[in-house]
Amino acid sequence: MASSDVGALNGHSPAVRALKPGVYAPIPTFFLPHTEDLDLPSFEGHVARIARAGVTPVIAGSMGEAIHLSHAERTTLIQAARKVLDGIGLVHMPIIAGSGGGSTRETLELTKEAAAAGADYVLVIASAYFAGALAGSREALKSYWTEVSQKSPVPVMIYNYPGASGGIDLDSDLITDLAKDCPNICGVKLTCGNVGKLTRIADDISHPSFVDAHPRQNPNAPFLVLGGYADFLTPSLFANAHGAITGLANITPHAVAKLFQLSEAARKDPSQLPEAQRIQGILARADFTIAKTSIAGTKYLIEQLYGYGGAPRKPLPPIPASAAKSLWEHPHTQEAVKLERELSNKIIN
């Protein structure tokens, strides 16, 4: 029996690589142009690139087109990412994997498969298919994450992304209740972009009374409050949040990591704040512009910068040529690229 199975049967999560505040990147899944098979060399190279910049990978999330992947493909990607991280000496860097499915049953299947493949944590979104029924049922939503967290062999992170879940948008009270009632829930990713919600949750979670009264099931898995974009990273850290899972880190990993470092430092040393604010402004503008082009735009920019990227899996279309040119030439994009080149200390061809 696998160690993860033993942990699940004993009612405790197994030892996992520590989950820490910081920057995480939802890794795109790259496909071969004619067959749409997995392009593993590009995927592996990209995982290594962002990890060396100090950014932790999230596999099979929305940016990774999880909805377009088979169970077996998700397993292949997680195994490949773990092999890459171990191979470049980052054996202690964890992997978060998306495991939200169409039903609670499938979500649990994906969760157990992800853990067996090497994921240390899972990121779980609500299904969009019956969103009309689920969105109005607080009880059903709470039951979903409660059951998944109770039966998962690894800690579970809530993924709140209305745009990918049929408009389902958890409020701060429900998320805080889940944090209190479910010791195997290790955090939340707020791709709703609601800074007020983030502030309320972070304030509750950071209070000493919460930590004392609601310890986590796994000591390596504290409850992290993470934004879903880079455009409010500095303000969020001053509100006691813990970082971000942001698609922009695929394009400018050194810059986003530097912003996190400066923002954390500025909480103790205000002299660091002006530089953090300068970088935050650059990345906020880039995030605003690039996010509007979604997965196809992100992949296009990766192609321009690093030589791989390609198109999404059908039926998602590639970015039109005219829009791609405009995106690359946009001053917000170019300013961020310039910053990334400066921080990575090399010219990107």
Rank of each mutant, 00 (worst) to 15 (best):
Q150Y: 06
T176M: 11
A114P: 02
A202W: 00
D231A: 09
L233C: 12
K142R: 13
V156D: 02
T107N: 10
H34S: 14
A81F: 02
C182Y: 04
F210K: 04
G101D: 04
N160I: 03
A81V: 02
F288I: 01
I347T: 15
G297E: 03
L305V: 09
L248H: 04
T35A: 12
P33H: 11
V195Y: 07
G281A: 09
I95G: 09
L259S: 03
P315Q: 07
I348L: 15
I88L: 13
H332R: 00
N10A: 14
P219W: 04
G247Y: 00
D5W: 14
A164D: 02
D204G: 00
S4D: 11
Y129M: 08
D173V: 13
Q261E: 15
F210Y: 13
T333K: 10
L301M: 10
S326P: 00
H254M: 10
G281W: 10
A60G: 07
C186H: 04
D86A: 13
C186P: 02
Y161N: 12
R17W: 06
Y159S: 03
L108S: 04
V188Y: 05
Y24A: 09
G22F: 04
D203K: 14
S326L: 12
V23G: 08
S137V: 07
Y159K: 05
S209W: 02
P183H: 09
G45P: 02
P26G: 08
D173G: 06
S62W: 00
Y308C: 07
P183Y: 12
I27R: 08
